[in-house]
Amino acid sequence: MMESRGFPFISVARRFPDRPAVRLGERTVRYRELDELSGALAARIAPGRTVAVTGRDRLDHLVGLLAALRAGATYLPLDREAPEERNRWIREDAGATLALTDGELTGELTGDPTGEPAGEPAGESAADLPDEPPATAGYLIYTSGTTGRPKGVH
């Protein structure tokens, strides 16, 4: 098995699939499950896209982050408690073309009702994903905007 230097999560998940990866309250998520969830989602995301992630479940955010990185996309976390106007402005400013909300990936930001990402997805399935994801910005976070408009920082 080739060691993934650029994305250690894959190496760790494949080497220790039954070890706990994260504990969320009473729930323990093992590396195998996290690998499967993020891989299945990453296969549906086209490289170079920005994925706005919001939801009630903290696991959604973790899976969204890992999936975006695996697909060569950018993860854009949004605060569910923030006013919708702020989140809409951030999505537009960031050029987000996909949304992951409560575990559902949609192409609603591109006007595509099928939920399919614009461009070529990362793979037909999680098995088609490369062990070494393409290099991208990875993470885009917006400032609070207390001194004016929020600013995106990579």
Rank of each mutant, 00 (worst) to 15 (best):
H61G: 15
A21Y: 06
S38C: 00
A40E: 12
G103E: 05
P134D: 04
H154W: 14
A68F: 04
E26P: 09
T74Q: 08
R86D: 04
R5Y: 09
G119M: 02
M1T: 00
P113I: 01
L98P: 08
E104I: 12
A99P: 04
E132H: 05
L37M: 13
T136N: 11
A135F: 08
T110G: 14
P133E: 04
D60Q: 12
D112W: 02
T147Y: 10
R88D: 15
G103W: 02
D57W: 04
E33F: 01
S144C: 07
T54A: 14
V63F: 07
T147V: 08
V22Y: 01
R56I: 08
R91M: 15
S11M: 05
G107E: 08
L98D: 13
D60K: 13
E132D: 15
L78V: 04
G138T: 01
G111H: 02
R91Y: 00
L78Q: 12
P121W: 05
L100C: 05
D128K: 00
D18E: 15
A43W: 06
T97C: 13
T114R: 14
P20D: 14
F7W: 11
A96G: 10
T147H: 10
L69K: 03
D35N: 12
G6C: 12
A96V: 07
G152A: 09
A73T: 06
Y75I: 00
P113K: 06
R30Q: 13
D128T: 02
M1L: 07
D93C: 07
V63C: 09
R23M: 12
P134R: 02
L98I: 11
L37D: 05
G95F: 03
P121A: 03
L105H: 08
L65Y: 07
A46K: 01
I90L: 15
A99V: 14
P17E: 09
E84N: 02
E108W: 09
G111S: 01
G64Y: 03
L78S: 07
M2Y: 08
P113H: 06
R27W: 09
D79C: 07
T101W: 13
T147F: 08
A71W: 01
L140A: 05
R49V: 03
V29F: 11
L109K: 13
P47M: 02
L37F: 07
V53E: 08
D79Y: 08
E3P: 08
P83N: 13
A21Q: 06
I10H: 00
A127K: 07
A82L: 12
D131C: 01
E124T: 12
A82D: 15
E85C: 00
L34Y: 02
E85T: 14
T106H: 04
R44P: 08
E81M: 09
G148W: 12
T110N: 11
A43D: 03
G6F: 01
G138V: 01
E36N: 06
L59E: 04
E108L: 12
T50R: 15
T146P: 03
G119P: 03
D18T: 11
